[in-house]
Structures are given as structure tokens and as C-alpha cells.
Design a protein around this nucleic acid. Sequence first.
DNA 1: TATTGTTATACTCTATAACTATA
DNA 2: TATAGTTATAGAGTATAACAATA
Lengths: 153, 153
Amino acid sequence: MATRRTTDAPPTAQLELTEALHDFFRAARRARGRAARDPSPNGLSLAQYHLLEPLAGGPRTNRELAELAGISAPTATRMVDGLLQRALVSRVEDPTDRRAVVISLSETGRAALALKEREYESVRSRIAAAFEPHEQELATDLLRRLAAVIEEL
Amino acid sequence: MATRRTTDAPPTAQLELTEALHDFFRAARRARGRAARDPSPNGLSLAQYHLLEPLAGGPRTNRELAELAGISAPTATRMVDGLLQRALVSRVEDPTDRRAVVISLSETGRAALALKEREYESVRSRIAAAFEPHEQELATDLLRRLAAVIEEL
DNA sequence: TATTGTTATACTCTATAACTATA
DNA sequence: TATAGTTATAGAGTATAACAATA
């Protein structure tokens, strides 16, 4: 759709914002779809990255990982199952509370996480390069609002 | 001091932006999970909305819908299958090219689409209310850049 | 041969409900 | 009883590969 550029802000700006939102959500959806396919051997999907991220600071229980990633406990279990098969994490009984399990990063897992973090770093740099500091603040604000809105969408 | 700041952007702004991106994707993930359990009878998921939207302007082939939604043809077929069962669309052979199918909105489908559009309208209003007009332009710009960046994530 | 669509297959990610084991 | 985790089950959404029908 050809973007019509006028100097007056009011209605045009809102329409374009709507359209940009649309494109953004579509891109996000497509990104999730692509991420489901795992081309690289030690690659992490976005969801896996979110799950593993807290482990950089030390071992966690299944429950903790689920809560920090904002997912249900069974989902965390299932995801950890897959990561176990790829030897990215270990999962052992907690000796102090035998109901619980302790999940830790393996060296491979730590490397995979670091790689993904560098990818995020690259994304951040690209955004940072494209916007002024005060625009970055606006971006943060905007994304936070979008996240909140999505929760009730 | 190896401060390699491209601009005067304090690292805090960049870190918060990264975190906001993180929160946004987590919210989007969870939203999709919830959508699987959508209780509303004629509700549309975001993906379904993106698929049906072009139909407001008239019938389309499966191929066209897939391309416009940015998904594969089999995915479009599958999604249309579900929408057919709910009688939100119709799907008939194209008499002029019998390889193709023509997909159209039913009255119910049109209503569901309109409802979702009103929901988006509400989202837009909330965002618009939160930002000044010139900030809306920035937000539009920002979302476009984010969408582009996400495509290569 | 090229295009359109569907079917077959497979995967990730999400959830709730029911269950086991431990506290 | 309450909590941690897993298993069972279900479903959306994504993809590629193989197929049939038509142009």
C-alpha cells in the first residue's frame, strides 16, 4: 500500500499507525512461525530463549522457569524435555526437596544462549542506530503499551 | 573507558528497549496460547484476522489470501477449513479457472471481521491517546523498522 | 510444463485436567 | 492438605513434500 505523506499530522498519522501496527503484528506472527522450524543444530527459538535466559544466573526449578517465562508448568516441562535431548540443559532432583527438580545450563546450552543474546544485541544495535535516544525511550514505552494491550486483545 | 556509544544514548535506554521487546514477545506468545481456548463463538484470532482482512474488499483465491497474509498455501487451506466449519466463509470453484477456488466472507464472517476491526480501532485509540501527534509519527516509523528487523530475527 | 489447491506429515508452543510423589 | 512435577490430551498455527487437476 502506497504510503501517502502529508505534513498535517492528525488523521493521517493515526491511519498510518494502524497500518504499521498491522504490519508489525504480522511480522511478529511470521517470526514465531519461522522460529518453530529449527535449522541450526544448537539454535534457540524465541520461546526457548525466554525459558533459558534466567539460567544464565544459576540453576532454577521447573516452577521458577515457568513463572519467569510466563508459561504453565507442563509447558516448561515439555520444553525442557526437548532441550534435554539436545543436551542444552540438565535436570536433576533437588536433594533438599525431592518434589522439585533443578535445571541447569550445560556448556553447550550456555553457548547457545550466549549466541542468541548476541543476536538480540545485534537487533538492539540496529534499532539503536536507527533512532535517537529519546526515540528509544518512546519505543520502549510503545512496546510496553503494546504488550499490555495484547494481554486483553 | 571503552564506551562505544553511537549516540549519547545511556545504556539504560537500550537495556530497557531490549527488555520491552522481550516482554512484548512473551505477551504475544501467551496471547496465542490463550486464543487456542477462545470461548467466544465468532471470535477471530490475530492470524485469522490477517487472513480474512482482504476479503472485506471482495472474494479472493486461496493463493491470494496466503500471499497477503504472508503464509504458505497449505496453511491458508487449513485455516479456511476451520473458518468454513464455522460458516464464516464460503469456498467455491472459480468457474473461469477450475484450478482455483474463490473464497468469500459470509454475513457472519463479515460481522466477525468488523468486530475485530473495532477491537483494533480501540487499540489504536488507546495508543493514540497515550502519545502526542508527532510521537505517533515516530511510533509508526518505529514499528515499521521493528517489523523489518523482526523479519530477519 | 507451470500453476492452483489439497492432502499427508511433522513440528513447536500453548493450555487444562488428572495423576504421582513428597512436604 | 498443599506443593512440585509429569503425563495425558487437545488444539492452533506453522512448514515442506507429494499429489491431483487444470491451464
